[in-house]
């Protein structure tokens, strides 16, 4: 410590904590969108750090599509409890029976719109939140590169590309009018590798699905889909196969492709990633469907 230098992770951490505190101090009713993934995990840890020894002064909001991996839900409940945070789960009522709105009844796109985008808007509207933290990073996609840390949304939760505010230094403009809100991305400057390194160094808990294990999977459109419950319709004669797989990203199980892997510890996962020659997002069925449509989804109100 004598050279008074902060490593890059510690600098990123400090920057994120600053952002989180700023939001807690300046907004009336903030909420943290907690998606249970690795980025959310880091974001949650940063929030714990920001207010220690106090508790996190805002609730966590999970928009559940009912198709999340079961392990995710177990993990979510445990972690929120350990963190002493209030957890709010929101499920769009139209799909709350778990069978009426599914990827195969409505198609991926429509299902996502109803159970994710619309659900999120409804959850935010019902809660009257004026700020919502999200765990998105700028390195996730080319079009995200220009994204602000504080992303302004009008009263319809829409992102108006022509009306975003310049961001300088760490001076964030947090002003909103009634009904308007801001999405805040405290992990903007983190890369995927930073996230993994941080999880490893700081012992941040992650859903075990990120680590390789024998799991029952079937093949769909070239992707390996895990059979997490009996709602997944199988083709005639199709039988789940046990394979050692892990997930690079976590979402709805029918839409998230697994990768075959033997990496059953965190360092091994990082090793696979570092040796990887292909990019991360390949596992996500939703992105295959609508390449480059992130922007549109954002305009609709999904991140």
């Amino acid at each position: 410590m004598t050279d008074y230098l902060l490593s890059h992770l510690k600098q990123l951490e400090a920057e994120s904590i600053h952002i989180i505190r700023e939001v807690a101090a300046e907004f009336h009713n903030p909420v943290m969108l907690y998606s249970i993934g690795k980025d959310s995990g880091v974001m949650l840890r940063l929030a714990q750090k920001a207010f220690y020894p106090g508790k996190i002064p805002f609730p966590l909001l999970h928009v559940n599509t009912t198709f999340k991996f079961r392990e995710m839900i177990e993990f979510r409940d445990r972690v929120a409890k350990e963190a002493g945070a209030d957890l709010i789960e929101f499920i769009n009522p139209v799909g709350a029976d778990r069978v009426s709105v599914t990827p195969w009844t409505h198609g991926t796109q429509e299902y996502t719109r109803i159970m994710k985008t619309e659900a999120l808007k409804k959850a935010l509207g019902d809660g009257g939140y004026d700020a919502a933290f999200g765990g998105a990073r700028r390195d996730e996609e080319k079009s995200r590169a220009k994204e602000r840390v504080f992303s302004f949304r009008d009263r319809h939760h829409q992102w108006d590309p022509k009306n975003q505010r310049p961001e300088l230094w760490n001076l964030y403009n947090t002003r909103v009018k009634p009904g308007e809100s801001i999405r805040v991305f405290p992990l903007s400057n983190w890369t995927e590798l930073d996230i993994w390194l941080y999880i490893w160094k700081e012992d941040v808990p992650v859903v075990p699905l990120y680590l390789a294990k024998e799991r029952p999977v079937v093949e769909r459109n070239g992707a390996l889909i895990m059979v997490d419950d009996d709602r997944l319709p199988l083709d005639d004669g199709q039988k789940p196969e046990m394979k050692s797989v892990r997930f690079r990203t976590l979402g709805c199980y029918p839409l998230t492709g697994a990768v075959e892997s033997e990496a059953d510890t965190l360092p091994k996962v990082v090793e696979e990633m570092l040796r990887a020659t292909e990019s991360e997002r390949q596992g996500r069925v939703i992105d295959f469907d609508e390449a480059g449509s992130m922007e549109e989804k954002k305009r609709e109100g999904y991140f």
Partner: peptide, 10 residues
């Protein structure tokens, strides 16, 4: 017409 003041790369 999207305002891009800065794009960040890593």
């Amino acid at each position: 017409g999207i305002t891009i003041d800065v794009a960040y790369r890593y």
